[in-house]
Design a protein around this nucleic acid. Structure first.
Lengths: 249, 249
DNA sequence: CGACGCTTTGAGGAGATTCAAGACACGTGG
DNA sequence: CCACGTGTCTTGAATCTCCTCAAAGCGTCG
């Protein structure tokens, strides 16, 4: 608690900019020129905080801009007619949120912090202004948006697979995304509950539990509560592909 | 056959432009100013043809630009590790294809004509050029791209639902999209096979057949081969929502 | 320490898949 | 014009995966 307050204070005093931010290669600035990053930096609201469970933005509310997570993680969700929540995506540090509001200018989804998050906020009216005289930015935004499309297709493909494959893929996917951001790819803490994983993968949370247990007995992973260690990544990946070959035959 | 050749010849001679195109309110020009449409018009390759089953673009090939369907329909698909095809989307006239290649500059999916299609092609290098001095275009492209994201979320939500709901939703969705484009919303021909519908909805084609039959016995629709008539749209929609309430209880 | 939420585990059942076979539609060639 | 073949669609029966419901274990926080 005290630690987080201290680190918070220090980030504010050292005047974080887009150019010295450790996310620069992951965030929007990637691909922009020096002067463009400088301009972007002036427009971004930095060091916004949300505690675990707090709403970052609400579905149905007017689009206020894009958000880049600097630390912590979040879930992007939508509630269906029955009140069940579907977790559209989990968002890890360095990833960008808000594309669900860009088209209609109303957020389509709700974003909620899974743990304390620190984020940068690029207000909508400033996006417009900056985009007008920053040709590179438009390209980046479009690219980021299409990235989302691509990953949605991956999710769609996953929804045709068995529960085992979904969980295996989920673990490998989180691992890979953490690796990209410089964290350990073999051992990490899941910031989301079994229920949330289930809501994301389209399976019951009991099934998530059972399969995680199965993977442990097969010595593919070690799990204690939310602390996960990948023991046999290759086999986990093989499981994922081999299984589907069997199921087709 | 003769008819299609005639209509083809006439469209070429009457010099179709983006401004006189009957898709203008659905296609990219929507939201652009007069002069911008004019500029766009000069860059677009019009009247490309593909016959049923022919490839429009192939997954893995370099991105060549965005494509707007003027007539006919297509499917956007991806092949998984087992060689099963997943139909990511069906594309109806006036809709835009190619966002799956915009980010990585490699097409992620394969696009195949479901019947004879006529399309406009906006080459990638010309997009860049036009976008540089057409602030509105970037916005449109980004918006269209995010639209795709939104509809992907809808599909994700659908994947959590029962097979009946998926088929009901599919029929209503096609109906609605045809209505938007000025076609009859109550009676139309499905250009895709049961197998393709199944691959799109994530269910076996036998299940698609069974449910279509079920809907017919319930007098919600009339179907003969691929010719579909919606008898009770309201009930079809109710079915879709009521069922899910029951399933939660 | 007790309450609450999260996770695990078991048993039974529902929905969808798979496999198999037959019906239908469409185009081709005799 | 009909026979034929191919691909599509329908229908049935058996099987299996996953869900639902239920209850107990675990952990955390006030």
């Amino acid at each position: 608690m005290i630690h987080s307050i201290i680190s918070q204070a220090s980030t504010t005093t050292t005047a974080v900019t887009c150019s010295n931010c450790n996310l620069d290669t992951l965030c929007i600035p990637k691909g922009l020129g020096q002067s463009e990053v400088g301009e972007l930096d002036l427009l971004v609201n930095k060091n916004n905080l949300r505690q675990k469970g707090e709403v970052i933005y609400q579905a149905g509310s007017p689009f206020k801009g894009l958000i880049a997570l600097r630390s912590g993680s979040a879930k992007l969700l939508r509630i269906d007619l029955n009140g069940n929540e579907l977790v559209v995506d989990f968002i890890l540090p360095g990833e960008i949120l808000g594309f669900d509001g860009l088209s209609s200018l109303i957020y389509n989804c709700t974003a909620i912090a899974l743990e304390t998050v620190n984020y940068c906020h690029l207000p909508v009216h400033k996006i417009e202004r900056l985009a007008a005289n920053t040709p590179g930015l438009n390209h980046i935004l479009l690219q980021r948006s299409c990235d989302q499309f691509d990953s949605q297709i991956d999710k769609m493909m996953l929804s045709r697979r068995s529960a085992e494959e979904r969980v295996a893929c989920f673990i490998l996917c989180i691992s890979d995304r953490l690796r990209l951001r410089g964290y350990s790819e073999m051992e990490f803490r899941l910031s989301m509950s079994r229920v949330e994983i289930g809501n994301h993968l389209g399976i019951a949370h009991e099934t998530v539990s059972r399969i995680i247990h199965l993977f442990q007995t097969q010595q593919l992973i070690e799990i204690k509560s939310r602390q996960l260690k990948i023991i046999n990544k290759k086999e986990l990946f093989n499981f994922y592909t081999t299984y589907s070959l069997n199921s087709t035959k």
